[in-house]
Nucleic acid binder design. Structure first.
Length: 614
RNA sequence: GCCGACAUAGCUCAGUGGUAGAGCAGCUGUUUCGUAAACAGCAGGUCCUCGGUUCAAAUCCGAGUGUCGGCUCCA
């Protein structure tokens, strides 16, 4: 979801950042330039609109852009669509494509164009035209001509471009119906959106549908149950119940990052979850974040469950006078946060109401900020390397709803840009995507299926913590000075991170963090006792190992271990016990040479320590 | 929160007004096995909840809850 890709941001340092207003005509018409398949996808949207208009006379058209992998169109219809309707619409579309109408661009004078859509009962189109006119007025330009595209009898307001004729539209499939507010505004009418996908060849369509099916198979909600990691229950919507194996995975990730933090000079703290309103008023949360907070009344006093850890670390900072020699102070906290997400937005581990962040707040002198930011980019690279994830950086600038002196924002944004440029990394810019208290670098990554996720975040805060909580340190001259604060999370939400890892690896977690790293498979019952001895040898070395003592046959035990994605199966029969060896089989099906127990233990211990992404 | 869909055994699902089903998992017994499923038997259900229609509701209607696909928001 990066709006502006690439590092071509020379101009950004000096110029104010201006984003097109969400849902504005400008954005609607300017978005999605680039993908060579876009004209075909956009044309497909027109053909779909044509089919819907034929099947449902009186339909009002919203917008119908190309999106990644396909297209959608928003409609106001006389009745809700059913899955059956999609089939009928598809059939109509196929007929239209077979008729092979040309896409013809036509331009009408502004007033005539407006009348055209008004007469056809298309108020949404008229609204877009009025917005375009207003935009032109604002910049002193004449109203632009109204460009339309016609194919057959269907005419739509459209900037284009399109394919020259309908037969250029490749194999397509309509995927789903969803509700969508007109212009994304919940106060405007709810339209029905139909999503579709279209590709140049049958083969590519099939591959896309396969990828979709594969994504469904990898869905962490499904795998979480299958691998016995976690579950959800309606007694606590949006909050996971962690099973022993999930908790083990959790703890492994947590201690790995703890180790990094210890090495990098962090000190871990822990602060209260239930906190009085006056703190949130001081931080600005009560004003600007209230709708996301769970509020509680206790003995006529108002409290809130913390949605972020940040303000509380200042109490520890201020618990004594800080010298310039003390900085940087790096407080890390695995804080348990609650955010009141709207019920309709909850989704597995990736959108929850309670989660734990690997959070930290770093207080620095101004002269230390750059180095600290660079170190943090290095920290992100180190941690993401454990999983083979490639980080991508996106600079989020000051949002409309923000606290503090605008001058401090300009300054903070400047530091971020400098650091990003100096790092040599590619980065994008997402305007107005900062938090209400700080501009930020968000780290995105693509998973194994090419889906983009937002993970880590690094925020430069010159406003909330330093100013609102009046933080100071004493400089060389004995004068009080204002420190700067950095908020950062590397995994982000542990819940979400585990969800994404689960899908990225399809449940086959890298050896170092797999909940069960090895399973001993005794061939017959008489081998079980030796199996426990082997397990003890491995456990001594910190390996998470289990013994399959079920009466099942070896083949069945192996199949089960495969399904559980256990990295190593250690087969133990008469031959191995005789020689005090074990025959490892990897979940990849590779049969490795029998190896002595201690030797195997040492090898696995070494492998775990290396934290390789497989 | 809003639009739409869905909710049947631990899991995946079949069952469209007339005695609630399958596969896997579980339990018991037999088998003691050499790298992805041994065999047999048994047990397992407020058909999400509440209300309504009906002689009769898993099935039709209404409300609620949860989940899913989206809108919006974001870690």
């Amino acid at each position: 979801m990066v709006e502006e890709q690439g590092a071509s941001s020379e101009a950004l340092v000096d110029e104010p950042f201006e984003a097109p207003q969400r849902g504005s005509a400008e954005e609607l018409l300017d978005a999605h330039a680039g993908d060579p398949l876009d004209p075909m996808r956009h044309s497909s949207a027109h053909v779909m609109a044509e089919a819907v208009m034929e099947l449902f006379p009186g339909t009002r058209l919203g917008i119908g852009p190309a999106i990644s992998d396909g297209f959608y169109y928003d409609f106001e219809l006389p009745r809700p669509l059913t899955p059956d309707d999609l089939g009928r619409i598809e059939a109509r579309m196929a007929e239209s494509i077979a008729a092979d109408h040309a896409f013809v661009r036509e331009e009408l004078p502004p007033a005539e164009g407006r009348r055209f859509f008004e007469e056809r009962g298309q108020p949404f189109k008229v609204e877009i035209l009025d917005d375009l006119a207003r935009l032109a007025d604002a910049s002193g330009q004449p109203h632009p001509p109204v460009s339309t595209y016609r194919h057959g009898d269907f005419v739509d307001l459209c900037r284009g471009p399109h394919v020259e004729s309908a037969r250029r539209i490749g194999p397509f499939r309509l995927l789903s119906v969803a509700g969508a507010y007109w212009r994304g505004d919940e106060k405007r009418p709810m339209l029905q959106r139909i999503y579709g996908t279209v590709w140049p060849s049958e083969e590519e369509l099939e591959r896309y549908l396969w990828r979709r099916g594969e994504a469904k198979k990898r869905d962490h909600r499904r795998l979480g149950l299958q691998l016995d990691l976690f579950s959800f229950h309606d007694v606590s919507p949006g909050v996971a119940f962690w099973h022993p194996k999930g908790q083990r995975l959790w703890r492994t990730l947590e201690s790995a990052v703890r180790e990094v933090q210890a090495r990098r000079g962090y000190q871990e703290i822990s602060t209260p979850i239930l906190v009085h309103r006056k703190l949130w008023e001081q931080s600005g949360h009560w004003d600007l974040y209230a709708e996301n907070m769970f509020r509680v009344e206790i003995e006529e006093q108002q409290f809130g469950l913390k949605p972020m850890n940040c303000p509380e670390s200042t109490f520890i900072y201020r618990s004594r006078v800080r010298s310039y020699r003390d900085l940087p102070i790096r407080y890390s906290e695995f804080g348990r946060l609650h955010r009141n997400e709207r019920s309709g937005t909850l989704s597995g581990l990736t959108r929850v109401r309670q989660f734990i962040q690997d959070d930290a707040h770093i207080y620095v002198r101004p002269d230390q900020l750059r180095d600290e930011l660079e170190a943090l980019l290095g920290e992100v690279r180190e941690v993401y390397g454990w999983f083979g994830l490639q980080p991508r950086y996106v600079f989020g600038t000051k949002p409309d709803k923000a606290v503090g002196d605008p001058a401090l924002w300009v300054e903070a944004e400047g530091y971020i840009l400098e650091t990003l440029k100096a790092s040599g990394a590619e980065y994008g810019v997402k305007l107005k995507d900062g938090t209400f208290y700080a501009p930020k670098i968000d780290i995105y990554t693509d998973d194994a299926l090419g889906r983009e996720w937002q993970m880590a975040t690094i925020q430069v805060d010159l406003v909330m913590l330093p100013e609102r909580f009046d933080l100071t340190y004493v400089d060389e001259a004995g004068q009080p000075r204002r420190p700067m604060a950095i908020h950062r999370a590397i995994y982000g939400s542990l819940e979400r991170f585990i969800g994404i890892l689960t899908e990225h690896f399809a449940g086959a977690f890298p050896f170092w963090c797999a909940p069960v790293q090895a399973i001993v498979v005794p061939i017959a019952d008489r081998h079980a006792e030796a199996g426990h001895e082997l397990a003890a040898v491995l456990r001594e070395r910190g390996i998470r190992v289990e013994v399959d003592e079920s009466g099942a046959r070896m083949q069945n035990k192996i199949r089960l271990a495969q399904e559980q994605k256990v990295p190593y199966m250690l087969v133990l029969g008469d031959r191995e016990i005789e020689a005090r060896t074990a025959s490892p089989r990897t979940r990849g099906g590779e049969q490795q040479l029998a190896m002595g127990w201690e030797q195997l233990g040492d090898r696995l211990q070494e492998e775990a320590r290396a934290r390789q992404p497989s």
